[in-house]
């Protein structure tokens, strides 16, 4: 619990340099391998070729990225809202927690490969099954993060508040909710990456457009360069969403500097 000091400003870029270098290295090795070995681009296209593919199909890729982003964000928003409301209910009503938690755990045991086509069967090719699938995948991690966050509240702080005459609601608002925020943001950063994967998977199982469909079609027409182009776009998108979550965390609780994920 000793005070820790924040790194100097502008350090973020400096700290990111090793990561950028290692990614760049991996791409260079890949590129060199493809050129030296003379492997067919139908098996393994070089990064430079994937990059060219992204540029030449940029309009098509963008048109298919938008529905994926929409499904991801809507599904994730639904999941976080439901997880938050339920977390409050479960926190106040332990009996409800005992009744519902096993159900949520079972929901996490369902294989996506089976669920995704069923969702499409039940809800059609529109946005609904994608939103539901994203929510299904990300809901439980968010709920767990919040529940663990509430449980991390220092008992002394709660005892103090009760000694001051605080109601159960006031204890929640002044101690349990703020205590849960580091856990909430850790959950947010992890879940947003699952959300993108789930959205693409849902599209893969059946959709009119989206990165999942691009990947499916490119695979069926033996275009690994296009598959990888769509993968690169989805990775970039995931990184951006992760960055937004991390930024949100910094803005909301960056000043705390105690425990939790940095």
């Amino acid at each position: 619990m000793h005070s820790r000091y924040r790194p100097p400003r502008g350090g973020a870029l400096l700290r990111g340099t090793p990561a950028l270098l290692s990614v760049l290295c991996a791409l260079l090795i890949w590129e060199a391998y493809v050129r030296v070995s003379g492997i067919s681009p139908l098996l393994l296209p070089a990064p430079s070729q994937v990059l060219r593919q992204i540029w030449s199909s940029r309009e098509m890729l963008w048109a298919n990225t938008v529905p994926t982003i929409r499904a991801t964000l809507l599904g994730f928003a639904l999941s976080v809202s439901v997880a938050f409301i339920l977390s409050v209910l479960l926190d106040f009503i332990p009996r409800l927690r005992r009744a519902l938690f096993p159900v949520f755990i079972i929901s996490q045991t369902l294989p996506l490969v089976a669920i995704a086509p069923l969702m499409v069967l039940w809800f059609g090719f529109d946005l609904t099954p994608k939103i539901l699938l994203v929510a299904l995948v990300t809901f439980f991690p968010m709920l767990i993060a919040l529940a663990d966050g509430y449980a991390s509240t220092e008992p002394e702080v709660e005892e103090l508040l009760r000694s001051m005459g605080a109601s159960r609601m006031a204890v929640y608002r002044m101690a349990r909710l703020p205590s849960s925020l580091p856990y909430f943001f850790a959950g947010l950063r992890i879940s947003i990456t699952y959300a993108v994967v789930a959205a693409i998977f849902a599209e893969y199982a059946g959709a009119r457009s989206g990165l999942g469909i691009v990947i499916l079609n490119a695979k069926n027409s033996f275009r690994p360069d296009l598959v990888l182009a769509a993968v690169a776009v989805s990775s970039a998108m995931t990184l951006c969403l992760y960055g937004v979550a991390a930024l949100l965390q910094r803005l909301m609780i960056g000043h705390r500097c105690t425990g939790g994920a940095a």
């Binding site: 002394e156 005892e159 103090l160 000694s163 001051m164 002044m174 101690a175 703020p178 609780i253 705390r256």
Partner: peptide, 17 residues
């Protein structure tokens, strides 16, 4: 009507936020 006691727990219990 409030409590007659003001309580200070063992650890300072200051809220870090």
């Amino acid at each position: 009507a409030g409590s007659a006691f003001a309580f200070m727990p063992q650890r300072d219990a200051l809220m870090p936020w």
